[in-house]
């Protein structure tokens, strides 16, 4: 895995910015596909809340997620316009509604995988 895509996402949700053309990436990435520069810097994501666009509760899991079923996946549109997939946690499926406010946090799996989780605001 490229450094920006994972390793720097240890403590905070990071975005990457191309220092040549200014393009902002979330999920973060090492290389810019607009100007083909590899000079990207990572910075903490400012806008961490948004609204739920769509979601699904998966009840027919693939083999490697068999013991996690059922689990809920959603897409959030952050207030800055970025759209992000995440694992919805702590909200029962019958309380989910399209348009509800959620916020984004990092999700660390015990084996080192990193993703996003979508939670209700505190």
């Amino acid at each position: 895995m490229a450094k920006v895509e994972n390793a720097e996402n240890v403590n905070a949700v990071m975005v990457s910015r191309c220092t040549r053309c200014g393009t902002l990436y979330l999920p973060a990435r090492s290389n810019c596909n607009h100007c083909y520069s590899s000079e990207t810097v990572s910075e903490p994501l400012k806008s961490k809340s948004g609204r739920l666009l769509t979601y699904t509760v998966i009840t027919a899991p693939p083999k490697s997620f068999e013991d996690k079923s059922p689990y809920t996946i959603g897409i959030i549109e952050l207030d800055d316009g970025h759209k992000i997939e995440g694992w919805i946690e702590g909200i029962e499926a019958d309380r989910l509604t399209v348009g509800m406010r959620l916020h984004l946090k990092l999700k660390h799996w015990p084996d080192g995988r990193v993703g996003f989780q979508l939670l209700e605001p505190d």
Binding site: I58, P62, E85, W87, G115
Partner: peptide, 11 residues
């Protein structure tokens, strides 16, 4: 796999 499958198990 890196951004969608391994973190979330989306089918």
């Amino acid at each position: 796999v890196q951004l969608e499958y391994e973190p979330y198990g989306i089918t």
